[in-house]
Every structure is written in structure tokens, then in C-alpha cells.
Amino acid sequence: MSAVTAALADGVTITKRNLIKVKRVPDLIVFSTLSPIMFVLLFRYVFGSAIAVQGISYAEFLLPGIFAQTVIFGSTVTGASLAEDLQKGLIDRFRSLPMARSAVLVGRTVADIGLNVITVLVMSITGLLVGWRIHTSFPEALAGYLLLLGFAFAMSWVMAIVGLLVRTPEVFNNATFIVVFPLTFIANTFVPTNNFPSVLRAIADWNPVSTLTQAARNLFGNVPPRQATGGAWSLQHAELYTLFWVVGMLVVFVPLAVRMYLRTAVR
């Protein structure tokens, strides 16, 4: 076996291990899909009754935003699970084995894509039920989903680093909540940014969560016909700008996460 195939095999072994947990702990999947369903329904009917978006129904405007928020929350599972493995001594065991050094992190982040696929699927069905539609071709829609999952995958590596730093799942959850919540709210996810105060609007417009949402809207066709998107370059080139972020995060954080993993020690 060459080093690469061996590393892949190890990654597969760890991915399987993580997916078995999803199977054995149905609560995990139930709650990670129930909360986005709840979000869809709450925003669609509570805020949707008060928020008017020009030229498009609120359901159509909302769903890509909820997708973006949910896959980012989904990526936090990576960090929480690594913190748990660290706490339980499993990372120690893995590090004492002659396995590929990247396998634990690769297996974790890949398994978490699987989890995100399931939640996105459930949300899409819920969305279709409350009036959201895809208006574009199959390849475009697929590109929309892939961009969402790709962004979440990149975020998983950031979360991996945080998880290895904080070391306890509880602390991790609190720490990420206070970051991820504003990150996904100071954005065009739930409301248009037009009326934000100017500083906030600048932040929102360049926030990759906004551009991810905008890109998803474009790719699913959830934009008002013939309306030029907002002024910022980032929003006008939402797909490209978001892709930069995905690639940039992977280039920076994958090697960093692997380094951290190798130096991680209990205590």
C-alpha cells in the first residue's frame, strides 16, 4: 500500500466509525434536523408575516439563508466530537497507532459532511412544503448544494482547531455558539441588508455567510427577476467570492489542524 492509499483507507475506517455513531445515536440526527425544520417554520410564518422582500416571496428568500446557517451549525459537530474524543482518551489511542496522521481529522470532517447532507435534504423537503422552489437547471442547483456543503466542510476544519484547543465539548458548544450566531445573523440570511446601519451593512455584505447565501439564491433561482444584486463586489460575485473563502480556509486550516492534532496531548 502506498502512503496515499493507506491514508485514504485509514480515513475511510474513521469515517465509518463516526457514521456508526450517527446510526447508534438517533437523537443526534433527530435533533440536528428538527432544529432547522423549526427554524424554517418559525421564520417562514413568524418573521415572514412581517418581512417583505421586494419581488419575491419570503419563503424563497429565506430558504437559502437557512441552508447556510444550518450547514455552518452542522460543521460545529466536528469540533465538539473531537473535543469529546480528546476527553475520552481516544485521540491518544489513535495517535499511538501506526495510522495516517491526517486520518482522524479527515474521517471526522467527511463524516460531518454526511450529517450535513441529511439535514440539507430534510430542510429542502420542508422548504418545498412551505413554498420554496428551485427555478434553475439541475447542474445549477447541484452547484448550489455543493457550495453549501463545501463551505461547511471548510468550516469543519476551523471547528476542528477550536475543538482541539478547548478540549471539552461543553465549552466548545458555548464558545462556538457566541461566534456562529452573530456570524449567521449579521448577514443577508434572514433579512435584506439594505436597511442595516452602514458599518453593519459593510460587515454583512463582506461576510462569507452572506455571499454563500447569495450564491445559493442565485444557483437555486431565488432572486427577484432582473434585479441587480446589492452594491458590494462580494455580493455581485457571490459564487466566486465564496469559493475563494472555501479554498482559502482549507489551505490555511487543514495543515494547521493536522499540526494541532499531532501536538495535542491530554492535560
Binding site: A6, T13, R17, K21, K88, L90, D92, M99
Partner: peptide, 28 residues
């Protein structure tokens, strides 16, 4: 080498057999 740490480092969600097979695979 084999290492058994101070607390039992097994995956709680995997069965006993799955735990051992996983480690076996990781030892190649």
C-alpha cells in the same frame, strides 16, 4: 507497541467487536 491509558479509550458507540476491528484496520 500497544498502549492502554489510564482510562478506557474505547469508542462507546461502537460494539466491542467493532472497536477491535477498527483498531485492527488502523494497525493495517
Amino acid at each position: 507497541i500497544g498502549l492502554t491509558g489510564q482510562y478506557a479509550a474505547v469508542d462507546e458507540y461502537l460494539t466491542g467487536a467493532e472497536n477491535l476491528e477498527m483498531i485492527g484496520r488502523l494497525y493495517r
